[in-house]
């Protein structure tokens, strides 16, 4: 369980208004072989945190603080150096499997792109590696010549996963990878990601707003609220023994499949009182 990524004092602000902290003093670390989930509502800063790690923040935003990946502060790297890490050592899966694939290129070509760019694979070697990756994510290798529109949503997300793990990254960032999928497909994709993480001994940073998904996949959990990390801990600590009032309030809104819970919306006024107390 070695530490692979450490984020310290990360702030993200708009360039033209540095007093608005979209991510406020975030500190956390990720370890090899572990899945860390970031949970929070929309606007809590969870996706921005992931984009900062990838160096993909929008030009209107700026980040300060340190992101140390494998002992190297990657916030200081220039674009070219960052490109050798992005896609090779850090992989990313995006939320929308419908829009994140290029519709005019075959999926085989798209899975092969990072292999050519980072590992210089060509010809037969490239072809067989692409076939291998497709098999790994549960798609017949013959589908390499298909275009994205010939695949279902779940299959497209599997293609995205194959692309992101093509170069065997040490860290995989998944931003709401199952939100757009049906429940049964979601369950399959979660299982696949978990199996890949174990087999390749990756660290996985998994962004979600769904506590059910957290319960299924997380080792550690980070809870974000309005740009701040309000609680971190193991899955059991956060889900079963939450400490922060926001975590407690958020858990109280999640409907359970057993129907035992009385739903209680978050009382934000009470919450801000609680925070100042």
């Amino acid at each position: 369980m070695s530490e692979i990524l450490r984020i310290s004092q990360l702030n993200v602000t708009p360039k033209n208004d540095t007093s608005r902290l979209l991510v406020n003093q975030a500190n956390f670390s990720l370890s090899t072989g572990k899945t860390t989930c970031i949970v929070g509502e929309s606007g809590s800063g969870k996706s921005l945190t992931a984009l900062t790690i990838m160096g993909l923040l929008s030009k209107q935003l700026q980040a300060s603080g340190n992101v140390v990946f494998q002992g190297q502060d990657i916030t200081q790297l220039d674009d070219k150096a960052m490109q050798t890490i992005r896609g090779a050592k850090i992989g990313m899966i995006f939320q929308e499997p419908m829009t994140s694939l290029n519709p005019v290129l075959t999926v085989g070509y798209q899975i092969g792109e990072p292999l050519t760019a980072h590992l210089r694979l060509k010809g037969q070697a490239l072809k067989s590696r692409v076939a291998e990756l497709l098999e790994q994510v549960g798609i017949p290798a013959s589908r390499a010549d298909s275009y994205p529109d010939e695949l279902s949503g779940g299959q497209r997300q599997r293609v995205m996963i194959a692309m992101s793990i093509a170069c065997e990254p040490a860290l995989l960032i998944a931003d709401e990878p199952t939100t757009a999928l049906d429940v049964t497909v979601q369950a399959q994709v979660l299982k696949l990601l978990d199996a890949l993480k174990t087999r390749m001994n990756m660290a996985m940073l998994f962004i979600t707003h769904d506590f059910g998904v957290v319960a299924d996949i997380a080792d550690d959990v980070i809870v974000m609220f309005r740009g701040e990390i309000v609680e971190t801990g193991t899955r059991d600590q956060v889900l079963n023994h939450p400490q922060h009032p926001y975590t407690k309030a958020l858990l109280a809104c999640v409907p359970d499949a057993e129907g035992l819970k009385t739903l209680k919306p978050i009382d934000y006024a009470w919450l801000s009182q609680e925070a100042t107390a």
């Binding site: 509502e41 707003h209 958020l250 409907p255 739903l263 919306p265």
Partner: peptide
């Protein structure tokens, strides 16, 4: 909707 808003609307 976000889960907290979802709970409000359901209630």
């Amino acid at each position: 909707l976000d889960v907290s808003v979802q709970a409000q609307i359901l209630l």
